[in-house]
């Protein structure tokens, strides 16, 4: 295929054309921004209104008498299914599930990246290829096999409980979700760290070997401290994905006390006793979204920087 030389377009109108272009571009950008921010705006204002105002007023208007009650109700009193104790329990469920899942999958990804780039073994490329492949496996196709595996793990837990006295968490829905997310996340975290460590100077590892550092000492003292950008990228990526996951959560922890935030939120909205409390629903949705927002705000700077660094270094 031959590459065609792009025709050089003469700027005939000069300054005027430039200004028009600018206006069009910024106008469009503003429009898109508005389009994206509108739902958030509506959610936010609605969550501070009373039911009265919602039923009689305009959706877009600011609350006349802002009230924090819907937030308090969503946190502590609203009904999730049949229990009416708010969403706070489920919020902590999510935290208890997300934090270990993110940390474990990130550390495993870092370790994999380290081995795949600095301790190359026979077939390392193949292993990496298979791990990459894991990134493309659709959620849906994992659902049933994973349910079977979790079922057997659960039974193992029960028999351990009976014989040894502890199930080691096997069969616990939160542990199950951590397990699922770690397994599913390893492909991505390995990809991130492998690409980062590929560009990481191998001579540093060699120098540390001459200095007498062991496999794990090199990992802990040399690799990890120099992996801040990719570490942040991976944590943000994993945190957002796992926190927002609904499919695995509803499949493996869809009922009972250990359901995560996303499932609980769905149940709040679907609980239809009497009037729909839009303000409480919106507040609950905001609470559910806060942690990911927070992570972005705190670490977003590194996110962009990390992605850039990876892009430049290859």
């Amino acid at each position: 295929m031959s590459t065609m030389a792009a025709p050089v377009r003469q700027v005939s109108g000069g300054v005027n054309v430039k200004i028009v272009n600018r206006v069009v571009i910024y106008g469009l950008l503003a429009l898109f921004a508005l389009f994206y921010l509108m739902p958030l705006f509506v959610m936010l204002v609605t969550s501070f209104k009373t039911m009265n105002e919602i039923q009689n007023g305009n959706m877009l208007s600011l609350p006349k008498a802002p009230t924090f009650d819907p937030w308090l109700k969503a946190w502590g009193e609203t009904c999730v299914g049949l229990t009416c104790a708010g969403i706070k329990g489920y919020f902590w469920n999510s935290i208890k599930m997300v934090v270990p899942a993110v940390l474990i999958s990130t550390m495993l990804g870092a370790l994999n990246g380290y081995v795949l780039t600095k301790w190359r073994f026979r077939g390392a490329t193949l292993v990496f290829g298979l791990m990459l492949f894991a990134c493309f496996i659709p959620f849906q196709s994992v659902l049933l096999p994973m349910a079977t595996i979790l079922g057997s793990l659960g039974r193992l837990g029960v028999s351990l409980q009976n014989s040894v006295g502890t199930s080691f968490g096997l069969g616990n829905p939160t542990v199950n979700l951590v397990f699922v997310h770690v397994v599913y996340g390893i492909g991505f975290t390995t990809l991130f760290f492998r690409n980062y460590y590929e560009a990481f100077p191998t001579e540093l590892v060699k120098a540390a070997q001459v200095d007498g550092a062991s496999f794990f000492q090199i990992f802990r003292r040399i690799m990890l401290p120099n992996s801040m950008p990719i570490f942040v990228v991976t944590v943000i990526y994993q945190f957002t994905n796992i926190w927002n996951d609904f499919l695995f959560a509803s499949a493996y922890a869809g009922t009972g006390d250990s359901m995560p935030m996303t499932v609980a939120l769905n149940n709040v909205v679907n609980t239809s006793t009497g009037v729909v409390e839009y303000n409480v629903n919106m507040a609950a949705a905001m609470i559910a979204a806060l942690p990911t927002l927070l992570v972005y705000v705190l670490a977003g700077r590194y996110f962009v920087r990390g992605l850039m660094a990876g892009a430049v270094k290859g």
């Binding site: 001579e203 120098a207 540390a208 070997q209 040399i222 120099n226």
Partner: peptide
């Protein structure tokens, strides 16, 4: 390498940046 009682200066220095 650590048991050979050698010290090496690398072409790129290989100083630990952290």
């Amino acid at each position: 390498p650590s048991k050979r009682d050698i010290a090496m200066v690398f072409q790129s220095y290989a100083l630990y940046p952290n």
